[in-house]
């Protein structure tokens, strides 16, 4: 349902008339983009769970280098809230079933290339995800992290463009390969040229 909503928003966005540009866009620019949205994990099956929150907040900050050439390279740092669960599990330690609280989140550091066509930006990147898991049970708390290889891809549409700034919607897909964790995030994006030359 959310995916269909994303499709609808993207289609509608393209039908909004573009606002008039100011001067001729600069030939080269360093652009900073921020993304904020809601994330949902794919294939999240939590055994023995009492309750599970699938996904949460997704935030990202990226820097793009725009030039007259075909693709714009970018670097991005992101935060993804992946899941949280309450579970009742038999730990096999002779204490019967125990209450377990889990939560997971990730920081993504990716780089790749972006393609701008009219008011649409398409991006694909690879990089690393620092995946964190917190566990609380039997009075003990632990937080672990592991660095995994992963991908990110996104599509953004900017119905509102003013001089050096643009505001729009974005859908992104990410995959943390080693952890076999995939997610989709939908939200808003705001960008502007920090330096142009």
């Amino acid at each position: 349902m959310r995916a269909l909503t994303a499709v609808g928003l993207l289609v509608l966005a393209t039908l909004v008339p573009a606002t008039s540009f100011g001067a001729e866009p600069p030939k080269r620019a360093l652009e900073v983009d921020a993304f904020g949205g809601i994330l949902r994990r794919g294939n999240l099956t939590v055994p023995d769970d009492v309750s599970t929150r699938n996904g949460g907040l997704a935030l990202a900050l990226a820097v793009h280098y725009r030039s007259r050439y075909f693709l714009s390279p970018f670097l991005e740092a992101a935060y993804y809230s992946l899941a949280a669960s309450d579970r009742v599990v038999d730990l096999g330690l002779g204490s019967g079933r125990s209450y377990v609280l889990n939560s997971s989140w990730a920081f993504g550091f990716t780089g790749g290339a972006a393609l701008d066509i009219w008011r649409v930006r398409l991006r694909v990147g690879v990089g690393a995800y620092d995946l964190f898991v917190r566990t609380v049970t039997l009075g003990a708390r632990s937080t672990v992290s592991e660095l995994d290889f992963g991908y990110v891809a996104s599509a953004s549409v900017y119905p509102l463009v003013r001089d050096r700034f643009r505001v729009g919607f974005e859908a992104r897909v990410g995959l943390v390969v080693e952890a076999q964790t995939g997610f989709i995030a939908l939200g808003a994006t705001l960008g502007g040229d920090a330096i142009s030359f």
Binding site: A3, L4, A6, V7, L10, V11, A13, T14, G42, N43, I117, V120, L122, A153, A155, V157, A171, V173, L175, G182, F183, I184
Partner: peptide, 16 residues
């Protein structure tokens, strides 16, 4: 997840 990714790709094609 694959269905979601495919849907996003379709949306991009439609938009483009």
């Amino acid at each position: 997840m694959r269905a979601s990714a495919a849907l996003v790709a379709l949306a991009m094609v439609a938009t483009a």
